[in-house]
Simulated assay, not measured.
Amino acid sequence: MTKTNIALAVVGIVALAAPVAAQERAAEDSGPRSTVTAAIVGGTLGIGPELGFRINDHIGIRGSATFLSINGSASSDDTDYDAKLRLKSFGGMVDIYPFGGSFRISGGARANRSNAGLDAELSNGQSTIEVGGETYTAAQVGTLSGRAEVKKFAPALTLGWSGGNRRGFMFGFEAGALFQGAVRIREFTSTGTLRNDPNFRASLEDERRSLQDDVDKYKVYPILMTSIGYRF
């Protein structure tokens, strides 16, 4: 999606939100207003607590911490890896409510401590495994392990809906992007008989670079979160 298409999409969402927000604002004027929200959020960043403070009709701030562990798989050059993704981040957002209602445009940043562990070994029925373009036996390789990390600081931008600004239970959602940069694949290690062999170490580095090339293009992490909580 081009920058022009993104801008048009944002303009369209804002235009659609305006009349709904105006009706909502009129309904809220007759009820008790809220300034503090405590919620549980969940989605692509993980699951965790969130606290929000509505400064006035048009500005608010939020802080959250999210965690989650996920088991999955990855593949590079015919080598399959068992992957364990550990989501762990903390951050804050400044919310702008352009119509004074529930629709918000948010910007902020997160301290990103997420990482992934990668392990590969021969599965049942295999006698050899390819590492960095070279073929090795199970005894020579053992278990192949690596680690993937991201930048420790990542800006974020989202569009969202926070429910009516009245006391009581609330439900909200937001979508956007975390600009975390390219994932960094750290040095591979091995438990096999060739773990200290210079030629095998070179193959390990070739394998790491190949996997790094596969992930270099993924520099933006999608944010899709829902929340449920209470406004005090």
Rank of each mutant, 00 (worst) to 15 (best):
residue 140 Q to T: 11
residue 147 R to T: 11
residue 17 A to L: 04
residue 157 L to C: 05
residue 212 Q to M: 11
residue 197 D to E: 10
residue 92 G to Y: 05
residue 65 A to I: 07
residue 35 T to G: 06
residue 19 P to N: 11
residue 222 P to D: 09
residue 141 V to S: 02
residue 181 G to W: 04
residue 165 N to I: 00
residue 79 T to D: 10
residue 41 V to Y: 00
residue 12 G to C: 01
residue 159 L to M: 07
residue 62 R to Y: 02
residue 72 G to E: 04
residue 64 S to L: 11
residue 219 K to Q: 13
residue 44 T to F: 01
residue 184 R to A: 10
residue 223 I to L: 09
residue 145 S to W: 04
residue 102 S to E: 03
residue 46 G to C: 10
residue 100 G to V: 01
residue 55 I to L: 08
residue 190 S to D: 01
residue 15 A to C: 05
residue 104 R to C: 05
residue 85 L to K: 12
residue 109 A to V: 12
residue 101 G to F: 00
residue 149 E to T: 15
residue 171 F to W: 12
residue 172 G to T: 04
residue 158 T to G: 00
residue 217 K to M: 13
residue 14 V to L: 11
residue 87 L to Q: 02
residue 40 I to A: 07
residue 62 R to N: 04
residue 44 T to R: 06
residue 179 F to A: 07
residue 160 G to M: 03
residue 187 E to T: 08
residue 57 D to K: 06
residue 221 Y to P: 03
residue 202 A to N: 15
residue 187 E to F: 01
residue 179 F to M: 14
residue 70 I to G: 04
residue 130 E to F: 01
residue 49 P to S: 07
residue 219 K to W: 02
residue 6 I to Q: 11
residue 112 N to I: 03
residue 126 Q to F: 10
residue 158 T to W: 02
residue 47 I to T: 10
residue 132 G to W: 01
residue 70 I to M: 09
residue 158 T to C: 03
residue 162 S to P: 07
residue 78 D to Y: 09
residue 215 V to T: 14
residue 5 N to Y: 09
residue 72 G to N: 10
residue 127 S to A: 13
residue 43 G to W: 03
residue 74 A to N: 13
residue 127 S to P: 03
residue 75 S to A: 11
residue 77 D to S: 05
residue 129 I to A: 13
residue 3 K to Q: 09
residue 122 L to F: 00
residue 119 D to C: 06
residue 195 R to V: 08
